[in-house]
Amino acid sequence: MTDGTDEPMVFETVLDAPPEKVWRALTIPEYLARWLLPIEAQPLTFSGRQEGLAERIDWTLVAEEPNRRLTYRWRESGEGAVQDAAESLVTFELDPLAGEQTLFRLTHTVPVRAANDNGVAMMMAA
């Protein structure tokens, strides 16, 4: 039986920078736009048109632990978005390593919708 979520996608790499520097790249809009997607407005809204992604990706901050963990709710919209796409959670985790390095972990969790789901639960959540 499923718990309502799919297996998350997890990506890990070691970065040659301390967690504080990586945190700035995740939280300062000008820096974030350099490596992720161009930011159009606040709250965080990214434009993925040039990268072949959804026209808009809206992010809402869910939780943060400075220099350690950051979680956003992500929803695609506009041209190129998956029809009836559910919101997903994107979590960045930073673990300090020796030598001013950081273990960077990105986890993307997409809720699984049952085959007979007619969207009532999502309407009730709103």
Rank of each mutant, 00 (worst) to 15 (best):
T2L: 09
T2W: 02
G4W: 03
D6E: 11
E7L: 13
E7K: 14
M9V: 14
V10A: 08
V10N: 01
V10K: 08
T13P: 00
D16E: 13
A17D: 02
A17E: 01
P19C: 01
P19A: 03
P19I: 01
E20G: 03
K21R: 12
W23L: 01
R24Y: 00
R24M: 01
I28F: 00
P29A: 05
Y31S: 02
Y31H: 14
L32T: 09
A33Y: 03
W35N: 01
L36Q: 09
L37Y: 12
L37A: 15
P38M: 06
P38A: 09
I39K: 09
Q42C: 03
F46E: 13
S47R: 13
G48Q: 07
Q50H: 12
Q50S: 15
G52W: 06
L53I: 03
R56G: 01
R56E: 09
W59S: 10
T60Q: 15
L61K: 10
V62I: 15
V62H: 07
P66M: 08
P66T: 09
N67E: 13
L70T: 11
T71E: 10
R73Y: 05
R73Q: 15
W74G: 01
R75T: 11
E76K: 00
E76G: 11
S77G: 12
S77R: 11
G78T: 05
V82L: 14
A86S: 14
E87P: 10
E87K: 09
S88H: 07
V90T: 12
F92C: 08
L94C: 04
D95E: 15
P96Y: 08
L97P: 01
A98W: 04
G99W: 03
E100P: 00
E100F: 02
E100A: 14
E100Y: 00
T102E: 07
R105E: 06
R105L: 04
T107A: 10
T109M: 05
V112E: 14
A115V: 08
D117S: 10
G119C: 05
M122S: 13
M124I: 13
M124T: 13
A125N: 11
A126S: 13
